[in-house]
Structure formats: structure tokens, C-alpha cells
Design a protein around this nucleic acid. Sequence first.
DNA 1: TAAGTGTACTAAGTCAATTAATACACTTAG
DNA 2: CTAAGTGTATTAATTGACTTAGTACACTTA
Lengths: 124, 124
Amino acid sequence: MIPINPKSGIPLWEQIRDGLKNQIMLGVWSPGEQLPSVRSLATDLGINPNTIARAFSELEREGLCYSVAGRGCFVEDNLEVIKMKRKNEALERLDEILKELKNADVPKETVISKIEELYKEGEN
Amino acid sequence: MIPINPKSGIPLWEQIRDGLKNQIMLGVWSPGEQLPSVRSLATDLGINPNTIARAFSELEREGLCYSVAGRGCFVEDNLEVIKMKRKNEALERLDEILKELKNADVPKETVISKIEELYKEGEN
DNA sequence: TAAGTGTACTAAGTCAATTAATACACTTAG
DNA sequence: CTAAGTGTATTAATTGACTTAGTACACTTA
């Protein structure tokens, strides 16, 4: 069951999206497995089916699942693809920041030392 | 004269803020120099003085100028301080991205090669 | 065919943001 | 001291976006 707090100020569809995302990432639902239907979740949580559908739609946009009209919503078969996509997005943002730092005359060595420092902390 | 487009969807105060920011960065107004007054800009552009004041307030928050009640709004004397602040903000964002990349198992070498590549392009 | 699925369209309600009207407080030239 | 100029605070109206729900539609499959 996904935790819902209507008074939190956070939109219901976001709470549902994040709850499902967590479950998917934790492996509660296996790749390719069908997620609970829009209507069953709606009745379980006592809210409108469209709100669930919105959450599904966002998850699909993020690549975590795919919906088929008349059949249901299924967990993405290959979660590695998603991780790869996120990696690439992060690398693009890195490019942006680096350009900005270069324009601000931050020397290359400063940036590199930041990296060395961070990667030293863990075991990666 | 600052370009204004009321139909653009971008708030007037943001357009004014960005226009003034550009002029300051380009040196149209010298450090310490008094900017046009809230009311003169308001009548020039045909909008409410409060909208101009909002733009000024934001510029002050960003450190590009400072307002004195009864006297006027003046360009910050030391623009280098501002550049330094922005540099630090960019470095903080760099930290965020690096953490994310590390979590996504992006090897240190990939990140460093990105840096080498970018800094090779220009003359910095 | 019937029951289940996702989806599209519309509308109501809420809430935040923008903008303006107005009055206030301060500084300074005269 | 006063008047004209400055920025600022408060309030309100309006607009617009967002969330959510109601309802109907289109598709799939047992």
C-alpha cells in the first residue's frame, strides 16, 4: 500500500508516482510485471482514477513503465536502460556546469581536485 | 531603453531585472553609479513603479546593486565580489552532480576526461 | 459480449503569482 | 523648512496555472 497524505501540500499524483517509483526500484514489482490497475489503486486509496493515471503517465515518461490501453501498465523490462539514460542526463548537466565554471575562470585543477576528493571518500 | 513584451508570458519584473542585469554586466552603468529611479523607469515603460521596485529588489538580492530609501538605487561598487559568489554557487552545484554521478557508477576517469576535453577547447 | 484496462475531455475548485493602487518614510536641493 | 524626489510597505484585484474529479470513450481479452 502506498502512503498518502492529502494534507501534505504535495500533490497526490506526485506522492503516488514517488511511492510506485520506490517500489519499482526496490524490486517489489519485477521487470515486465503488471502494476495494479488505475481503478484498483484508485479505490484502494479512495481517490479519482485520473489521479492515478497521471502518476502512471509520469512514470512512463521517465521510462520506468509502459502503458497499453485495454491491457494495463507494466514495469519496464530492462531497468538497466533507465539507469543508463539517467547517467547520460547527469553527464549533460555536468557539461553545463563545467562550461559555467570555465566562464567563471575556475581553474581546471580546482574542479579535478573536487572529483578526487569525492571519489576518495567511498569505495568506488 | 529596456525591451518589454507584456504578452511574452514572462513576468514584467523579470524582463526588467534581466534587462538591467545585462546593462550592468555590459558596463552601461558604472560601479557605484545611480540607476534610473523607480518612477522614471515606470513612466518610461508605462508600468507600475512597484513592478520596477520588484526588479530592483531582486537585483539587490543577487548583489548587483543596493537601494537606499530616499536616495536611489546604485550599482554595486565591487562586481568582482559578485563573480566570486557565483563561482561558489556553481561549485556547490558541481558537488551535487558529482555525487549523483558517483551513485550512478560513473567512473572517475569519465568525469575527468570530460573536463580535459572542455578546457582544451578554449584558451583558459 | 461483458468486464476489465488505459485515455481524453471537461469542469470545478484552489492557490500562488503578478500587477497595480495608495500611502508612508526618508533624503536633499532650494 | 519645504517641496520634490527617492525607495518601501500594505493591500487588493486579477489572472492563470495546477490539482482533482466527473464522465464518457476506446481498446483488449476471457
